[in-house]
């Protein structure tokens, strides 16, 4: 209950409007061939909120957030972002919407023909169309400092460790200061110390830029730090919802098993 109150206060302070949904999904269905991945997904992401999604591997977490940015199209159901139905957006409108959304890929998805610096430069010059060299350099350095990898600025992605790549991927996404962030397993494969730093970075983004985030994770420490609210995905639908404490002490065994 406490955490719920905390969340409502936070939302109140920031927007003066407790529950303004920036993402709302209802009865979403998605299958690949005969394989039903999402059967009935409904949820809302409120402005300024950190929403953690838990779920077993292969339960369709990545698929659901890929639908949100239009990389995949749902078979049935409605998916609205800022009130617009994503699957009905025209090319330019979709692009405009995507600029407001940051997407951290599970794999990092660094452009491997470019150095770290060029990776971060890419969205600045191509999306924000910045051209001032000093400004670009400044933003890149600031962002790399944020993820603790300033000294990797001239390295190629192939020379980085998995954890470093993930952090660079995070930096490349956050550099556009998105209104909505979709984190696909931001801390998986990282050591506990770095994980903690990343979790705190996510929290910082929320506080500094009022970012609304969906955080997919298996890392309960990360969930504990970042979550205002938690959803549990199983067999293509959400089966539980609540704060970290609610779910930890709840009755459902499947949900419990995430906390052990």
């Amino acid at each position: 209950m406490d955490t719920n109150n905390k969340y409502e206060q936070v939302a109140d302070q920031k927007t003066g409007n407790a529950k303004e949904a920036v993402v709302s999904i209802s009865h979403l269905k998605k299958s690949f061939g005969t394989k039903e991945v999402l059967t009935d997904v409904s949820m809302e992401l409120n402005r300024g909120e950190n929403l953690v999604v838990l779920g077993k591997s292969g339960s369709g977490k990545s698929v659901s957030i890929k639908c949100m940015v239009g990389l995949l199209t749902q078979d049935e159901g409605s998916l609205k972002i800022f009130g617009d139905e994503v699957s009905e957006l025209k090319e330019d409108a979709l692009k405009a919407m995507r600029i407001k959304i940051g997407f951290l890929f599970q794999s990092g998805a660094l452009y491997d023909s470019m150095t770290v610096k060029e990776n971060l430069e890419f969205p600045l010059t191509r999306v924000l169309k910045l051209s001032d060299k000093d400004d670009i350099q400044h933003r890149i350095e600031e962002m790399l400092e944020g993820v603790g990898l300033l000294d990797a600025i001239d390295k190629m992605p192939s020379d980085l460790s998995g954890g470093m790549r993930k952090r660079i991927g995070l930096a490349r996404t956050l550099i556009l200061k998105p209104e909505i962030m979709l984190y696909d397993e931001p801390t998986t494969g990282l050591d506990p110390i770095t994980s903690r730093e990343i979790s705190e970075l996510i929290l910082q983004m929320q506080q500094k830029y009022h970012t609304s985030s969906i955080i997919i994770t298996h890392d309960m420490a990360c969930a504990k730090i970042t979550a205002d609210r938690i959803l549990v995905l199983s067999k293509g639908a959400f089966i539980a919802e609540g704060s970290y404490e609610d779910l930890e002490n709840g009755p459902d065994e499947l949900v419990q098993s995430f906390f052990k």
């Binding site: 692009k95 890929f105 491997d112 969205p123 191509r126 999306v127 996404t173």
Partner: peptide, 25 residues
């Protein structure tokens, strides 16, 4: 092979999602 591996490692998706234009680039 180059674009294929960019596709597989989600680099093309990442470009598209960021609002850049992978076809053009």
């Amino acid at each position: 092979a180059e674009l294929g591996s960019m596709k597989v490692s989600e680099q093309i998706d990442a470009m598209e999602v960021s609002g850049a234009n992978p076809i053009q680039y």
